[in-house]
Amino acid sequence: MNIPVVLAILVVFAFLAFRKANLFILALAWWIGAFVFFRFGFTAPIPASVISIYMGIVSLATLAFVSSSEQRREEVSRPLLRLMTEKRFAPLLAATIIAIPALAAANVYVQMNVPIEPPFFPRTIHPASPPEITVHEKKISIDLGDNPFRELEKSNPQEFRQHVENGRRVYYQNCVFCHGDNLAGNGMFVHGLDPIPTNFADGDTIANLRETFLFWRASKGGPGLPEEGGPWNSAMPAWEKILKEDEIWDAVLFLYEFTGERPRAREEHAQ
C-alpha cells in the first residue's frame, strides 16, 4: 500500500463529504478515486490489464448506482443537463467537447509509443541442487556432505582461521570483480551483468543456504545451472576450472565469516 496516496484519496473524500457534494461530482470522484487508488495506491504497481478490468467494473457500478433511483438520476443529470443546455455554460461545454477527444487522442498516441523492451524470462534464483557432483574427479555429496573445514571451527580454531584467510585470498583474487569488495554483489563489472551477482551481505541469502549448495554453485557456475535456473545467462564461472576444491571450500567459509552469517544446517530426514 502506498500510504500517502491512500491518505490523499481519503482526504479528498472527507472534503467532498463535508461539502455535501452533488452526486454527479461524487460519482466522478469515486471513479477517479478508484482509478488513482488502483494505479498509484500500491507499492507493487497493478498491471494495466487488471486495472482495465477493475475500472470496467467500477464504471458499471457507478452507472448502476447513479441511476438506481429517481432521486439519484435527477441529481446526477441536473448538472449535466445544465451544462449542456444553459447559455452561460457554453464556453465550458465547448471546452469539454474539445478536451475529451483531445485527451483520447493523446492516450492513443501514448499507447502507440511505449518503448520497446526485449522479452523477459523469469528464472528460479536458487534452483535445486543435484544430490552429488564431481569436482576434480572427486564425488561430493551436496545433500549429505558438509564443508570439510567447518568442524575445525571448534576443534582447531587456529587452522580454521588459516582456512578463512585463504578463502579471503581466493575471494579477493577471483570473486571481487563481480560480488564486490564488501560482498554486496556490487563489484566493478556489475553494470555489465544480468542477472546481477548474488549479494552475500543482505543477511538473508546465504543464511538460507547450505555450504554444499554454495560449493555447487561456485564449482559448477552458470553453465552448471539446471534448465530452470535461467539457463546460460548467468556469468558465474565454473570455478572448478580455475580453483582447487579446498580453495572453493575456503572461499565459502570466508563468505560466512565476513558477513557474520551461519550456514543452514543439514536437515535431518524426517521419520
Binding site: 467537447i97 475529451i100 477527444p101 483531445a102 483520447a104 487522442a105 493523446a106 492513443v108 498516441y109 502507440m112 509509443n113
Partner: peptide, 17 residues
Amino acid sequence: AAAPMIRTALIILVFEL
C-alpha cells in the same frame, strides 16, 4: 499514430455532438 488518433478523436467528437 496520427491516423488512429484522428479517428478516435473524430468518433468521440461526433458522439459528443
